[in-house]
Amino acid sequence: MEWISERRPAEGERTMVISGCNRGIGRAIVEKFIGERYHVIACVREADDVFRGWLSELSQRENVGCAICQLDLSSEESISKAVKDIVSSKVKLDVLINNAGVVTKGLLQMTSIQSIKDTFQVNFFGHVQLTQGLIRMFIRQKGGVILNMCSVGGMDAYPAYVSYGCSKAAMIYFTKTMSQELAPYGVRVNGIAPSMTDTRMREQMGEEANEEILRRTAMKRVAEPSEVANLAYYLASSESSFITGQIVRIDGGM
């Protein structure tokens, strides 16, 4: 883990860890939280110069600490190392956002078991392992918030999204179970289920899926990443102090 700012979290200040934040919803969440004076540990598979420059600029502008932690959710070894790096940094964590994910598309009969396993590794098992490692910090400090990026795709069925949908459904159950297990330690756990959001993932889903989702959406538009980030901020804040175990849809009325 590498701090890209001289500034470090001080006592009484808030810090969040997020996976998958070099684009899309994750990027918008980082912007929102830094704007609200959170220090950020950004876990990404690869941090290129553009990402570093962007994060460094945000960090300087808001005078918060930012660190980059290499994390490949497809590798158990990488996740273990990230956990060790974060824990040994001795930073008090307030929020963990399990955001990284991949979209895989294919009819059940044309999807290999290996492909389903690969999707689950990134969208589910990777988050479980990362969370298992980091929740000890929350337990120790008797408080914290975990947000899991779920999806309406884990609740509503769409043809050709069997592996993605099932992995997100697993995240939903994970969220609910974890909320029960961690409530005694003062840790809240919630999930966010966006529908189509204006990100690269939208492009990957193809024109047909885009049209179908718009047809089903009362507001006839897709979500902006900043709208999802605002919800994440609300669920992480004390304004939502009695909300746990919930999967909040942000879908424009589906």
């Binding site: 000890r136 337990i139 120790r140």
Partner: peptide, 22 residues
């Protein structure tokens, strides 16, 4: 119980600056 167990594990990790495997 299970809640106390996790609290105990966290206390031991803290006391000895270690991270136990699941």
């Amino acid at each position: 119980d299970s809640v106390g167990h996790m609290t105990l594990m966290a206390a031991l990790e803290d006391a000895f600056d270690i991270m136990m495997e699941t």
